[in-house]
Simulated assay, not measured.
Amino acid sequence: MTTELTLNNGVTMPALGFGVFQTTPDVTAEAVESALRTGYRHIDTAAAYLNERQVGEALSRSGVDRSDVFLETKVWISDYGYDGALHAFEKATRKLGTDFLDLFILHQPLPSEFDLTVAAYHALETLLADGKVRAIGVSNFMPEHLEELVERTTVVPAVNQVELHPYFTQPEVRAADAAHGILTQAWSPIGGITFYRGSGSGTLADPVIAGIGKEHDRTPAQVMLRWHLQHGRSAIPKSVRPERIAENFDVFDFALTDEQVAAIDVLDTGVRGGPDPAAITRETFGREIPEY
């Protein structure tokens, strides 16, 4: 199985990335440096995570050439609109210490003000045309959001990053992505978001996943990441512990059987762990994104 995926514009991207969602700024740089030492070459961050500057510091200190790292970040809803999104690019690249991005995406669909969403995406199209970003995309877009965006814009998103793990597989979103040639990218790929919602022990303690792990002498997290990869998805696990960072990357030398993949597929509960994209508004989730 390839370790890279090809986006709909021909750009290649490492299938497994390293995420820094809910990683506090004081530990972000160390975690990203650990990931780069381990072998990760795809880093995912976002303006709303408030740790882009620390990601940039880690990249600078790592000694890894910028051209060898696929760098992905997101525009927060407070910066939607055409000019706002262009300025969001300036803020992001300043913090990250780079003059280009490999993937720049809208963080939420903002359905209550979708005209602003479309205007922000037009800005991403401009950045793409100007060569400042290599690919553009979206995050947390449901099928109806994708349909409207595609109808009102020119460039089909390369990626749709959504909550996706064995307990929440979003088949309708995946089908809509596939119909448009959009790569589905999983955030919370091992179901960690369920802990924040208080929904029990979560996927890491699931007996089916644990049983498959024993058959391969692998951890539940490794089994779930391998499940994503065998489905042809991108996955971006997070951790701040070096041993977990290394463990999550060690998933390319074994394979699940078709029966094992199918056994994980049917664990879906249909219950979202993170916030409903329809509930995200600037009134409730808006926040000023710092310049530096």
Rank of each mutant, 00 (worst) to 15 (best):
E4A: 06
L7E: 07
N8P: 07
N9D: 07
P14E: 04
G17Q: 06
F18R: 08
F21Y: 15
Q22F: 04
T23P: 03
D26V: 00
D26F: 00
A31L: 01
V32M: 09
T38F: 00
Y40Q: 08
I43P: 03
A48L: 10
Y49P: 07
L50W: 11
L50M: 13
G56K: 00
A58K: 00
R66K: 07
D68W: 00
V69Y: 02
E72K: 00
S78K: 06
S78E: 15
Y80M: 05
Y82P: 08
A85P: 11
F89I: 11
T98I: 05
D99A: 08
F100H: 14
L106Q: 08
L106C: 10
Q108K: 01
P109E: 05
P111F: 00
F114D: 13
D115I: 05
V118I: 15
A120S: 13
Y121H: 08
E125S: 05
R134S: 03
S139V: 01
S139I: 00
F141P: 08
M142T: 07
E144P: 02
H145N: 13
E147M: 04
N160A: 04
Q161M: 10
F168E: 13
T169R: 05
R174M: 07
A175N: 11
A176H: 07
A176Q: 09
G181M: 04
L183E: 14
T184V: 09
Q185Y: 03
W187K: 01
P189I: 10
P189R: 00
P189V: 12
I190H: 04
I190C: 09
G192F: 00
I193V: 14
F195P: 09
S199A: 11
G202Y: 08
I212F: 01
K214C: 11
R218E: 14
T219S: 13
P220L: 07
A221C: 10
H228N: 08
Q230V: 11
H231F: 04
R233Y: 14
I236Q: 09
R244Q: 12
A246Q: 09
E247Y: 04
F252W: 12
F252H: 06
D253N: 09
L256K: 08
T257Q: 09
Q260M: 11
A262F: 07
L267S: 07
T269M: 03
P275R: 05
A278M: 06
I280Q: 06
R282W: 12
F285Y: 14
G286P: 12
R287M: 13
E288T: 12
E288K: 04
I289T: 12
E291R: 06
